[in-house]
């Protein structure tokens, strides 16, 4: 029982990781890909944060009566990782907007089709 509970956070982490990766690979829509990437990165946040928490621990401020503290470092790290994740997401969405302007679509297969059509017409023309 205790082992199962102990592994619970890992199970969730792995689920999120695999689910995110699956969405990135399986979905052709660029926005959905970004969503997948977001979920994928979230799994890492959990991986770092969960072990930092001790049952019964408090915020790491020295005060009389408290002897068990949670580790603050993972939180700081993940704060950075979240910032990075937001930046990635923003950049990815910006690119999606530009792609939409240039191709009129954000579906991967339609974009590919247009590129192939370009290459084909170029070969015929030249």
């Amino acid at each position: 029982m205790s082992t199962l509970a102990g592994y619970f956070s890992y199970a969730v982490t792995i689920f999120l990781l695999v689910a995110g990766l699956f969405i990135i690979i399986a979905r052709g829509n660029l926005i959905k890909k970004m969503v997948g990437l977001g979920i994928f990165q979230t799994s890492v946040y959990l991986l770092y944060i969960a072990p930092g928490k001790l049952v019964g621990g408090t915020a790491p401020i020295i005060a009389p009566g408290f002897h068990v503290y949670s580790n603050p470092l993972p939180h700081v790290l993940i704060l950075t990782a979240i910032v990075v994740g937001v930046a990635t997401l923003a950049l990815g969405l910006a690119l999606a907007v530009r792609i939409h302007e240039a191709y009129g679509s954000i579906e991967e297969d339609e974009i590919l089709e247009q590129d192939n059509a370009d290459a084909g017409s170029k070969e015929r023309g030249g």
Binding site: L37, V44, L95
Partner: peptide, 29 residues
């Protein structure tokens, strides 16, 4: 305009790579 799709593709692949690296570092930590 294919530069945009190339950049997007690289963004996805690169972010996956970077996330793998953080996971690795996380385990080491």
């Amino acid at each position: 305009r294919r530069a945009l799709t190339a950049a997007f593709q690289y963004l996805i692949m690169g972010s996956i790579g970077a996330t793998f690296i953080v996971v690795g570092i996380g385990f080491l930590y």
